[in-house]
Nucleic acid binder design. Structure first.
Lengths: 336, 336
DNA sequence: CGAAAGTGTTGGAACGTTCCAACAAATCGT
DNA sequence: ACGATTTGTTGGAACGTTCCAACACTTTCG
């Protein structure tokens, strides 16, 4: 419609001042007289002037933009983390470019490249799936923070994650305090996070003198995986009275496995999940869980990134946040 | 670390050609000799050259970027739509800037402004919450498509949404075919979408000669709202045997209300939801639902936007997609 | 009262690309 | 063999900003 977007020059001409002054005024400098400022604003609104972000970032060599890469938007816990990140970023007056990897390393890599082309000033990686090599390369190119994966050993990258080992122990402690002894673990597969949760489970069982009761069943971080693992546990004949399931989604699957066998939760079987996704709190599910402070992980992650942007030489930090137990209706006293 | 990012000039110098030629080569023009191309690529990789997107979009006055504004990331159905949009956008070689309104019109407005500053070439609004006035303004400034809200009457804006009226009728048809007659509706509140679903419910009830059985209970598009509405329905003493709940999340709440009263789904009460979010299919929930083709809505929406970008003068189109019934375990034959 | 310090304002040079007109060299057709 | 085309290549002018040194005017102060 409009033949062409008005530029700073058009505004200057209409207001009868130089383009430099318009530039100052637009950025709210106090070296502009009230009079000039008024006529500039007048002219700008009249023309519908809109600063060109590309030109701006070219000229001052800063994009005022952060890139956020998330493994997979469909996972509700990532969505909650993102909300935290975005809030913090907004407060700093930065803009956010959010992209998904679609759970696909190749796409993820490509998206990251694009973000770097855009000269983002920093990168937030949420649950990434990149080989350590590329991660290193990124770290060299651009400040970055890794959320939700403890990247020990990756030099130069800040990271933040919850303490999975200690969280898993909380789950076991809770079940033990309810009188359970035969507590099985449905795992989340072979990934790093799942391994840590398994480790915490084993440690805590041993500490409670229940080493001989330890039993792990293969699962995954999915509904299906939880169902499979729980089914194996229930059919094992070992008389488990409680299940610590590696994450909330899988716990939902476990719930179904229990129901399919005509058993009741929590009367016959107690279930504890992990993550604290909002969904697990819905009344029909009401799953006891180890909740990560998701929004806080997001905001702290962003804060970490801003610190590094402010001082690129500071030593890489890892922040660990403590998860907390949320007791709902899927866990109850042991009746055997 | 690196003193400064290498530019096209540095590459040119190292490869011993002009910057123009480098520019051509980088964009894969076929007017570059194999020889030059090789040395350019060699030089570029050696320097770690990365084109500057800001400079590029300034120079050719196209950002190759689309803005995507989503009402609220936490809603899983939006996440599925976004995935569809991103896939299509990627295919066209465009980049995506995704922002949330955080369910807050003020934030949403601000984010849209920022996107426009970035000279995005088009805007995808998913479940927006903007006053018609601003929408109009946007439509004038920049091609835009509205997803998941039927914006009749907004001139100049393309839109795509599922046919809520016809979907609601499918739900009722399904329940009637199972033998139910006293079918209540738990509404989604006063918003446009909820009203359409309610309308479809009423129409279908009337067509089946069940006008006198029509009964609506106030709910909302939330777990809580569904619980409340279903509770009211069950406690009404009208002996409803089936509930058509306005969306899937609310249906989850309704499930809890039924359970709380010691009733069984689907033996005593059948429940049908709406949206087809992946979650509703989890085995512990297994909710019969009217599924929107979410990913397809996303891809079609993006396609619509590209069409408009290609030809800004084409008359605004509205695409309606048909939802479809997915039968799961929450609905069954009527036993009374 | 004259030098120093402050207050608004300005034009021009970046920033890193793409586009364009121009051109040299190789190839063609007759 | 000579203009006409084709094939690579080039420097310079955009694009819309911000930054900087320089300016013309006040005001301040010893």
């Amino acid at each position: 419609m409009a033949p062409n977007r008005p530029t700073i020059k058009d505004v200057a001409a209409l207001a009868g001042v130089s383009k430099s002054l318009v530039s100052l005024a637009m950025r709210g400098s106090d070296r502009v007289s009230a009079e000039s400022r008024a006529s500039i604003i007048e002219a700008a609104t009249q023309l519908g002037y809109r600063p060109n972000a590309a030109a701006r970032s070219l000229a001052d060599r800063r994009s005022h933009t952060l890139g956020v890469v998330v493994l997979d938007l469909l996972n509700p816990i990532y969505a909650e983390i993102i909300d935290g990140v975005q809030g913090e970023v907004r407060q700093h007056g930065y803009h956010t470019m959010l992209v998904t990897g679609n759970d696909n390393p190749v796409i993820e890599q490509g998206e990251v490249e694009k973000l770097l082309d855009f000269q983002v000033e920093g990168l937030v990686l949420i649950g990434h799936r990149m080989p350590a090599g590329s991660l290193d390369a990124i770290g060299g190119d651009c400040p970055a923070v890794v959320i939700s994966r403890a990247e020990r050993g990756i030099a130069g990258l800040d990271s933040i994650s919850n303490d999975d080992v200690s969280g898993a122990r909380m789950a076991v402690d809770h079940l033990v305090s309810l009188g359970h002894r035969s507590i099985a673990h449905v795992t989340g597969g072979g990934n790093e996070v799942a391994m840590l949760r398994k480790l915490g489970y084993e440690q805590s069982m041993t500490e409670h003198g229940l080493a001989d009761q330890t039993a792990c069943y293969d699962g995954a971080f999915t509904d299906e995986g939880g169902y499979r693992g729980a089914a194996a546990a229930l059919d094992s004949g070992r008389g488990h009275t409680a299940l610590f399931v590696a994450n909330d989604i899988a716990a939902v699957g476990a719930l179904a496995a229990v129901a399919d066998r005509g058993l009741d939760v929590p009367t016959d079987i107690s279930i504890v999940g992990y993550d604290g996704m909002a969904l697990a709190g819905l009344r029909s599910l009401s799953i006891t869980t180890i909740a990560q402070p998701l929004a806080r992980i997001g905001t702290e992650g962003a804060r970490l990134l801003f610190l590094r942007i402010g001082d690129p030489t500071r030593p890489p930090a890892h922040i660990g946040v403590e998860p907390r137990l949320i007791i709902r209706n899927s866990s109850g006293p042991c009746h055997t």
